[in-house]
């Protein structure tokens, strides 16, 4: 049992006013350890102190819930035309894996999905997606290594329209948000797809281990390509991904999916209750 759960157990049943200052301090430390950010955490503690919840856990939960975005967490879907999803993010967060897992989820619901391997930069990223495509029995549109990612995405859109697919998911190369040329390239990918079909969703993949830098990532990606949702990956590890909640609060971009492993099925729609409980188990 972690520090947090011990604390929660210790002060369970007590309302805010009964808790000692040092216990509050311990709770604050524990929340900081969940990557919620030092400033945000002191606000949460203040909020929780004021809450007249049944016990401390419910007070904290309701304080944290106030950070959740009110935007829809539902993935866009169009009955009459192709729905296009771009998957973006910094290097190594799990974009390619998430692309495949999202495709698998949609495919299991009976939707026809086409994948575009627009990560032409990282060595063998295309092959990685193709391997997934073969596993899931999905069409993968690919281009040459170091080729133009926008052209791969465009071809993907054309192929998806051609085959009357319900979804096109475009995997893109990882890029640090500080590289303005690479961010411009991402904007271009989007614009080029939109010559053929609207881009309905841009999902930013955030690794649960990410620290406070995640907020900058989200802000800058949102500026470049209008991010519509987050995929929070690697939640099966010891990190609880508090940064995603901090991002929601800061940008109002909702977490839409979570990734919990390397298998095709280790992926689910975001559930706020489970997530918030998870934060307390750190």
């Amino acid at each position: 049992m972690g520090l947090f759960s011990r604390l929660i157990a210790k002060v369970k049943g007590e309302s805010g006013s009964q808790i000692s200052a040092s216990d509050w301090q311990e709770l604050e430390r524990a929340l900081i350890e969940s990557d919620l950010g030092v400033k945000g955490v002191s606000e949460i503690i203040e909020l929780a102190k004021k809450e007249r919840g049944e016990d401390i856990e419910s007070s904290l939960t309701s304080a944290l819930s106030s950070w959740l975005s009110t935007n829809s967490r539902q993935l866009a879907s169009n009955s009459d035309r192709l729905t296009t999803v771009m998957v973006v993010g910094v290097n190594g967060t799990g974009k390619t894996t998430s692309t495949a897992k999202l495709a698998s989820l949609l495919n299991n619901d009976g939707a026809k999905v086409v994948l575009a391997a627009a990560d032409t930069f990282r060595a063998a990223a295309t092959e990685q997606l193709q391997t997934w495509g073969a596993r899931l029995n999905l069409e993968v549109v690919a281009g040459p290594q170091n080729g133009d990612p926008a052209s791969v995405a465009f071809n993907g859109a054309a192929a998806a329209k051609e085959s009357n697919a319900s979804y096109l998911i475009v995997d893109t190369a990882g890029r640090l948000h500080t590289k303005s040329d690479l961010m411009d390239e991402l904007g271009k990918v989007r614009r080029v797809i939109e010559k053929l079909t609207p881009v309905d969703e841009v999902l930013l993949v955030v690794d649960a281990t990410t620290g406070q830098n995640g907020i900058n990532q989200a802000k800058i990606f949102a500026e470049s390509v209008s991010v519509t949702g987050l995929i929070l990956t690697k939640l099966d590890g010891s990190a609880k991904g508090g940064i995603a909640l901090a991002i929601e609060r800061e940008t109002k971009i909702p977490i839409k999916f979570i990734g919990t492993g390397e298998g095709a099925g280790d992926f689910a729609a975001f559930d706020a209750t489970t997530y918030l409980q998870g934060l307390f188990q750190a």
Binding site: D35, L176, T209, G214
Partner: peptide
């Protein structure tokens, strides 16, 4: 380099699990 508070937990887990002699910081 972008990792957050979990850095300590995971590093300790790797130190206990496989052990390591040095760290490489990426990104």
């Amino acid at each position: 380099a972008m990792v957050g508070q979990d850095a300590v937990r995971t590093a300790q887990a790797f130190l206990d699990g496989v052990g390591f002699d040095a760290v490489v910081l990426t990104k």
